[in-house]
Each structure stands twice: as C-alpha cells, then as structure tokens.
C-alpha cells in the first residue's frame, strides 16, 4: 500500500474531494476539537454585524486539516515528513473542496527514500484556497 520509489513518476497525481458542501456544523466541530473558538468561524451574528464578513468562514487550519487527509490517504499513515501551506482564499459554508498532490521528485537521503509533492486545494470554482508542499517517506 505504501508508495514506492520504483513506481512513482514525476507528474503522478492523487486527488480527492475532501469537503462536500461545507456545513456550519463542521466549523463548530473544528472549533471544539481544535480549541480555536474565534467567533468569525461559528457566530454568524458577530461575523456579519461586527467583523464585516458576509458569513462565518472556515478556520485556515480546517482547510489544511482536510488537505492533510488527502495526503495521508495517498502516502500512508505516519509517513509524512513535512507539510506546509499558504492560505490563499477563505473557505465558506457550502464550499466543496478538492485536494491534489502532484509528484515533484523522488530522492534518497541516507538510504531512506522520499517523495516531494506539490499540494493544492481548490474550491468548486477552481479557485485555490490552500497552496503548498509536502514530503513523505516511501518504500524503495
């Protein structure tokens, strides 16, 4: 099941829908689990009337969290070595997000094989909401 340096090719991709029609309830779940209770993510009254946004919106870390789900499904459990993103657009209730990993390179360091990935998550309009990279340990 683990990825292998023998079979991976530059340009290979793995893609998943990681959120389908994001609910406000999922934002509540994420606030509760992560401990980030900033009302801009769960409190429509505050967010529209005080913060000046059209509605509550997702924690950046929820975008990263669901992107990470795609990565661990691809590279296997416990294999991620690095993972980083820039949050390029806000994510709103109703959004559907698709995450893609693209193989940029494979390499060997001290006898351990790694894959370097380009990571991108887009919304239903194709607008990128998180843009980044990851690397993971792979089999020989």
């Amino acid at each position: 099941m683990a990825l292998s340096a023998k079979t991976l090719k530059v340009g290979d991709t793995h893609q998943e829908i990681v959120v389908d029609n994001l609910t406000r309830t999922q934002l509540v779940q994420y606030a509760g689990a992560s401990g980030d209770y900033n009302p801009i993510h769960t409190d429509e009254v505050y967010t529209t009337q005080v913060a000046g946004y059209p509605s509550v919106f997702a924690h950046g870390m929820l975008s990263m969290g669901v992107t990470g789900k795609m990565l661990t499904n691809y590279v296997g459990d416990g294999r991620l070595a690095t993972f980083g993103v820039r949050f390029t657009r806000q994510v709103w209730p109703g959004d559907t997000l698709t995450s893609t990993a693209t193989v940029q390179a494979t390499r060997e360091e001290d006898g351990v094989h790694f894959v370097d990935l380009i990571v991108s998550t887009v919304n239903q309009d194709g607008t990128e909401v998180a843009s980044g990279y990851a690397s993971a340990r792979i089999d020989a």
């Binding site: 950046g60 070595a81 690095t82």
Partner: peptide, 22 residues
C-alpha cells in the same frame, strides 16, 4: 452582536496566512 466595545480586549482581526510542519 459583540460582548466587548472596540479597543477592549478581544481582538481576532487576525487571520492565518501560512502554516508549515516538520
């Protein structure tokens, strides 16, 4: 709509721009 007046505690005008893990 908010439990504080402007300038009194709170905050939260910040957003997360990037996150990186090793």
């Amino acid at each position: 709509p908010t439990g504080v007046t402007r300038g009194e505690g709170g905050g939260g005008g910040g957003l997360h721009a990037e996150q990186h893990y090793i």
